[in-house]
């Protein structure tokens, strides 16, 4: 398969290196997800509160994070903080910080959306049956919110995994960076490696995200 440049994969530890690169990407996404989900739930609940000050602050946070390209955020956190605060963050730590900031913002918006989409008459019917506000949340509102939320937050996870491809720009050796290194190293012997290796990267991302996406779809269907 000289033409596609796939033979490079079999040279040395190239395949294992690519997989460990994917491992780095998955680890950063997973840690960020674990931070983002609880924080996002907390902020999302706060966003449905009547307090205007809290809502305004959270709205500004959400908009800033959304408007700013993730790459710019990565540069600010990785390079900016080194200059201004003298922090010596590793690329991975900076990535986790940025992805958590982003994930928290997105998650809070999903939570807010799910909460306000529960119709008022659900609260009223529960009240009319004599349920206390705590019971209403426990048995009526939270189960419905979670059902709406789980497929959406799973999609957020796949978006995060995909977006980790940006972190090679701050020197983190994740799957795409490993791919570049392999291609560079074999430029003379296998000039077509760019195709084969990037194709492999595509397949790896696909294999990582597809099952998650299928799960989201299945849950969505089950709870529709």
């Amino acid at each position: 398969m000289q033409g596609l440049g796939l033979e490079v994969l079999l040279k040395g530890k190239n395949a294992a290196r690519l997989l460990s690169g994917l491992g780095v990407a998955m680890r950063i996404s997973l840690v960020s997800v674990l931070i983002s989900i609880p924080l996002g739930i907390l902020l999302g609940v706060l966003m449905t509160r009547k307090n205007i000050v809290i809502r305004a602050i959270l709205k500004i946070y959400l908009e800033i994070i959304r408007i700013m390209p993730q790459l710019v955020l990565l540069f600010i956190v990785f390079f900016g903080t080194t200059r201004v605060f003298g922090w010596n963050l590793s690329g991975e730590t900076a990535s986790v910080i940025v992805f958590s900031l982003w994930g928290t913002a997105e998650m809070s918006d999903l939570v807010r959306g799910a909460l306000i989409s529960i119709p008022q008459h659900q609260y009223e019917s529960a009240a009319a049956l004599g349920l206390t506000p705590a019971q209403t949340y426990l048995y009526i509102i939270i189960p419905q919110t979670v059902r709406r939320l789980i497929p959406l937050s799973i999609n957020l996870i796949t978006r995060m995994i995909k977006t980790t491809s940006l972190i090679l720009m701050i020197g983190v050796v994740e799957v795409l960076k490993v791919a570049q290194q392999i291609i560079e190293a074999n430029r003379m012997s296998s000039p077509n490696a760019a195709f084969g290796i990037y194709l492999t990267v595509f397949v790896l991302y696909f294999l990582a995200c597809w099952p998650i996406s299928l799960l989201a779809k299945a849950l969505e269907k089950r709870w529709a």
Binding site: P119, H121, Q122, E124, S125, A126, A127, A128, L129, G130, I140, Q144
Partner: peptide
């Protein structure tokens, strides 16, 4: 409220 049963216009089942 337990002593008052109410049925609404909108279908309000959970």
């Amino acid at each position: 409220r337990q002593k008052i049963g109410m049925v609404f216009q909108s279908y309000d089942l959970f």
